[in-house]
C-alpha cells in the first residue's frame, strides 16, 4: 500500500489507544471531586441560578406573581412552600442526584445535575 495508509489489521498501537482513553476516563473520575460537582440549577423566566447541592440554603423566588421557597438541605432540594394553587412542586418532594421539579404556573424549573447533560446532548 502507498504511504499514509492505515493498517486494516489490529496493531499494538490500538491497544495503547484504548488503554490511554480508559486511563484518561479513570483519571478524570478520580480527580473530579464527586461532591462539589452536584449542582442545583434553578431556571426562572429570565434567569438561571446555580447553587451547590451541598451548601444548605433557603432560596426565595417570586415568579409570575407566585412566591416559591426552595430549600437546599443535606444534599436534597425541595420546595417547602409555594403559593401556587396546584402544589405539584411541593408534592414532588425531595430530589437528589438527578431530578427535576417543575412548577409550570411560576415558570420555574429546579434541576439537579441533569440540566448540563441535556444541554450537552442538544
Amino acid at each position: 500500500m502507498g504511504e499514509g495508509i492505515v493498517s486494516r489489521k489490529l496493531k499494538p498501537g490500538d491497544v495503547l489507544a484504548v488503554l490511554f482513553v480508559f486511563a484518561l476516563a479513570i483519571l478524570l473520575m478520580l480527580f473530579l471531586p464527586s461532591t462539589n460537582g452536584s449542582v442545583v440549577k434553578i431556571t426562572t423566566n429570565d434567569n438561571v441560578y446555580t447553587y451547590s447541592l451541598y451548601e444548605d440554603r433557603i432560596i426565595e423566588l417570586s415568579e409570575n406573581g407566585i412566591k416559591l421557597t426552595v430549600v437546599i438541605e443535606n444534599g436534597c432540594v425541595y420546595v417547602s412552600d409555594s403559593e401556587c394553587r396546584d402544589g405539584i412542586c411541593k408534592a414532588h418532594g425531595k430530589i437528589k442526584d438527578k431530578g427535576c421539579i417543575v412548577c409550570l404556573p411560576a415558570g420555574v424549573v429546579i434541576e439537579t445535575d441533569c440540566g448540563e447533560v441535556d444541554a450537552v446532548a442538544g
Binding site: 493498517s7 489489521k9 496493531k11 498501537g13 490500538d14 484518561l24
Partner: peptide
Amino acid sequence: IIKKTCVGSLSFVGVSIIGAS
C-alpha cells in the same frame, strides 16, 4: 496528526477510538 506521524503503529480501530474520544 496520526496520519502524518505514526500511521504504521495504529489501525483504523485505534484512529477511530482516538477520534471518537
